[in-house]
């Protein structure tokens, strides 16, 4: 074996160890709830906990609404920027990157000051309003991922020519977006959707400061007060995230191949 290849394997092994050892240790620890034997007791406790079911259900619902809101905002915006305002692309890209630079705590404090019960838009005056504000906040946090995914999808098709081809055949904007553009970037939209799902599921700051019964604060609460259950929860959360990533990979195989780039 050549020495270059040997060292490549060494680096790979080190990287894999860095990733897998804590994971294996967490799995191992999560299974030691019953003295002397390995068991899934911690998982049973966690999955049987009504607060787990309630918070997980809440976060899944919030994720679904966040995805819908994100798609409604991002797809038409990214499409219009590509079609008519390409000169604005750097500006929009910069704006979509802001949630990565501005901490969630700053955003949520801004929301609390802006949308309090005395504000003209009193989102925080009711539970429904606060839930809506949380979804809006999540959509903001997921914006960099959703925008990039959709924009990358749009890059693989000839947006302008396809739009013009549909227009000349009599289609209006609604038909063009729903029957021509969206189906051709659906896999990209799904990638963005799963990333959004993973972000929303683990988010703590916004849900906690808006006092919402989400999965993130529940994770934190369990972690601070129990021994084995947090490890089991960490593994469950990790499995959900990994399942989302795998779904992206599987779905990307079904992406329609572009007519302009026959393969």
């Amino acid at each position: 074996m050549k020495s270059g290849r040997f060292w490549a394997w060494v680096v790979f092994a080190l990287g894999a160890a860095y990733f897998f050892i804590p994971l294996i240790a967490t799995v191992e620890f999560s299974m030691r709830m019953r003295r002397g034997v390995y068991s899934f007791d911690a998982y049973e406790v966690v999955l049987g906990d009504p607060r787990f079911q309630a918070t997980f259900g809440y976060s899944v619902l919030a994720a679904v609404f966040t995805i819908i809101l994100g798609v409604l905002i991002v797809v038409p915006t990214a499409y219009w920027i590509r079609l008519r305002l390409p000169q604005l692309r750097p500006v929009v890209e910069f704006i979509t990157l802001l949630p990565l630079v501005i901490p969630a705590i700053v955003i949520v404090f801004g929301y609390i000051r802006m949308y309090g019960s005395n504000s003209p838009l009193p989102f925080l005056a009711s539970d429904t309003g606060t839930n809506a504000l949380l979804v809006i906040g999540y959509a903001t946090l997921a914006l960099p991922y959703m925008y990039r995914a959709v924009d990358t999808g749009l890059r693989t098709i000839d947006v302008r020519t396809l739009t013009e081809a549909a227009q000349i055949l009599g289609a209006g904007w609604g038909t063009i977006i729903t029957r021509v553009i969206l189906p051709n970037v659906l896999i990209a939209v799904l990638s963005g959707a799963f990333l959004t799902f993973a972000i929303v599921l683990g988010e703590f700051t916004m849900a906690s400061l808006l006092n919402r019964p989400a999965f993130g604060p529940y994770l934190q609460n369990i972690g601070a007060n129990r021994a084995y259950e947090p490890a089991a929860l960490a593994i469950i959360a990790f499995a959900i995230t990994w399942a989302c990533m795998s779904l992206i990979q599987i779905l990307s195989r079904f992406a329609p191949r572009s007519a302009n780039r026959p393969n």
């Binding site: 013009e164 081809a165 000349i168 209006g172 021509v180 007519a259």
Partner: peptide, 20 residues
């Protein structure tokens, strides 16, 4: 008139068939 109101057919250089 807008393109979709003209009842005109067009063939593009890059085919522009809908891939989906």
């Amino acid at each position: 008139l807008k393109p979709n109101q003209r009842n005109v057919g067009m063939v593009f250089q890059a085919y522009a068939l809908f891939p989906n």
